[in-house]
Design a binder for these strands. Sequence first.
DNA 1: GTTAGCATGTAAGGAGTTACATGATTTT
DNA 2: AAAATCATGTAACTCCTTACATGCTAAC
Lengths: 210, 210
Amino acid sequence: MARRAETIELAVLGLLHEGPMHGYELRKRLNLMLGWGRVLSYGSLYPTLKKMLRASLIEESLATKTPGTPVSKRPRITYQVTEAGTREFERLMSEVGPTAWEDDNFDIRFAFFSSTDMEIRLRVLEGRRTRLQERLDRVQTQLSITQKEVDRYAAELQRHGVESVEREVEWLSELINAERNGTPHHQSQTTAPVAPPIRPPATPAADQKL
Amino acid sequence: MARRAETIELAVLGLLHEGPMHGYELRKRLNLMLGWGRVLSYGSLYPTLKKMLRASLIEESLATKTPGTPVSKRPRITYQVTEAGTREFERLMSEVGPTAWEDDNFDIRFAFFSSTDMEIRLRVLEGRRTRLQERLDRVQTQLSITQKEVDRYAAELQRHGVESVEREVEWLSELINAERNGTPHHQSQTTAPVAPPIRPPATPAADQKL
DNA sequence: GTTAGCATGTAAGGAGTTACATGATTTT
DNA sequence: AAAATCATGTAACTCCTTACATGCTAAC
């Protein structure tokens, strides 16, 4: 993954706006946030924090948590954003352009959407949607020109991929509508509420659902 | 992305089983196959091919395409699998275990499922499903213990993530069923056929669809 | 004749994971 | 008291992307 360093910085700044945190916790929150695929390693997070310290985007304060003990040899370090960090966060969040709607970047930006204007939100959402549609088009045209005997499984993989992206486009469309109407999203479910985390142990009949 | 080198090798071996190809074409096919996210760069593909040549997994043959011209200075190189390559491919494809059902690896393995026994296919599909369910569980439990005031957008992102993974679990379940019944998959559509690639230009009303 | 796409490569560099190393605190 | 988990780091290494460099071939 190319430009993730920037993404991590943005995420750290965003999370620290919720209050001071130390590295370990930061990592957990981060992994919960975008941890659907890879998880962030310490070897990646701590150097980033150091870098951000040097850039004065964040400050550290050694927490003397337990008042009895005389300050441990290995102190917990709590980080907080500086003013410069806040400004940088705002700058990054109001960026519109490819960096905002690429796969990784989009997720993190979306998670902190509350910190931006609707105008920006709409532009990012629409940018993302356009990007996905371009992907769909590219695949569809390439499939139509190639058209050689397709393997069953390869074809099924394609189909599933297209379906997933199409669904994400629909999701974005809903969000865009919600933004325009000022509607808080997903109060009205279109699909049946996905209440109990479906778990077919070995004999799943989960297909008739829809 | 950590172990992609192996993945590329597997993909190359698989694709070359469909017939000889040169690097450029290989790259195009590869990007169409797993190109939903990142695209594979030449700087990654050609060194891999060289490496595979050295390992005798593939062979090159300089195509003297146009019989008139005396062999161009820059010849097209066509690659084909060797016997060793075929064996390696079969070995890799019959691997069951984490490497088989991690995000990247799974896709490529699935695409070449025709080259394996049903037994292996089932094990890989089930392994993948279990992996995804673990992810769901982890997130769900972590959400239940954290339970602090969640931001609207962060929550929506979570919800969407969970929904996507749940849907992939359902997809896998269908495939597993199909394997067990010997049914060719997705002849019977459960959702309406996704015929025209929905494209809401600026005023999308694509929500009422379902 | 010139733009666009086909085709093959290499070198430098960045980004991040793995593995290692250490120690504190909480739970069982 | 052991095991798990919290907590902080570093160094080496791998993988891959970016950018560059070259040249052919088809279309406009």
